[in-house]
Amino acid sequence: MECEERTDKIFTLRSPRFSEGCLLMKYALKRAAAGLATMLIVSFLTFAAFDLISGDAATAMLGTSATPERLAALRAELGLDRPLPVRYGEWLLGFFTGDLGSSTSYKQPVWDLIASKTGLTLCLSLVSFVLIAAVSIPLGVFTAGRRRFEGARTALNQLGMAVPPFFTGILLSWVFGVGLKWFTPGQFPDAGRDFAGAAVYLLFAAAALSIPRIAMTARMLRSTVQEELGKDYVRTAISRGNDRGQVLRRHVLKNALPPVVTFLAQTMAEIVAGSIVVEQVFVIPGLGQMLVTSISNRDYPVVQAIVVILAFWVVLAGTAADLINQRIDPRLRLGGAA
């Protein structure tokens, strides 16, 4: 996109609004293109890797005693004789049109197998993300600059990071499932019939997933805010009689947030990975469970599709974080677009 600065006459000042908006767009487009390129590379690598390992499908179908002629014929029929990039292109096209081939263990189209599960995993990830952001941001900001019980708090934080989600999940199912009977562990209610039950169930799964990340994010935010609070401009602002809380909200947070946003995007990626484990603990029929089953079954078409979907989700989160950051911090905007 062209970003002409309006300086047609020497004495006209350039319109800052216009050029800023233009730069913003330019940066956003650039970032989106980079994200798209990453997705392409990632999906190609995944495709190539699984193509390499799954070996020759024709040999697998006919057995090793088949004659070379029959093998060649079957390969031509399956389209395996064509070069890798061509097959990748076809697969990618299929990815967006809902044709991902068929699963080798379920004998069903891959798309039918995973379409309904994607939504569930997405739901779980989003609920966990909201939980993490909602708890860790206030916690991190509140504890920043307060030195009391610093040691105990750090120890507690380390403890939070040490609890693996699958153990938290088991503990939660024991206390709230077996003990208090708020939900039945291992039986995910049908969301259509029992929406509240499904929501409660997901909430517990999300809680198990979130605890270590809450500890990490709060710690990260705390140290960033702390560092920012020690800077000269904060001292100046406070010495001029500004309200402490106001300085924190108006100035400090704005400067401390970008690295945290990036970290939260990384968190989104970790949630996706964590959901694989947590779905197993809570027996939630999502993508993660499907992935694990398919890995055990060596069902490569399904593994491939799920890995690519999860990878896209990760790249999307990273791209979104960069775009949000350049909205928060103008310096990134200019630096990124120049």
Binding site: I41, A269, E270, V272, A273, I295, S296, V314
Partner: peptide, 21 residues
């Protein structure tokens, strides 16, 4: 940069499914 963006468990699962579980 590209690799660290992906969670280690996800990557390990991919490698494991290639090597055999």
């Amino acid at each position: 940069d590209a690799l660290t963006a992906f969670p280690s468990i996800l990557l390990a699962l991919v490698v494991i499914s290639i090597l055999g579980p």
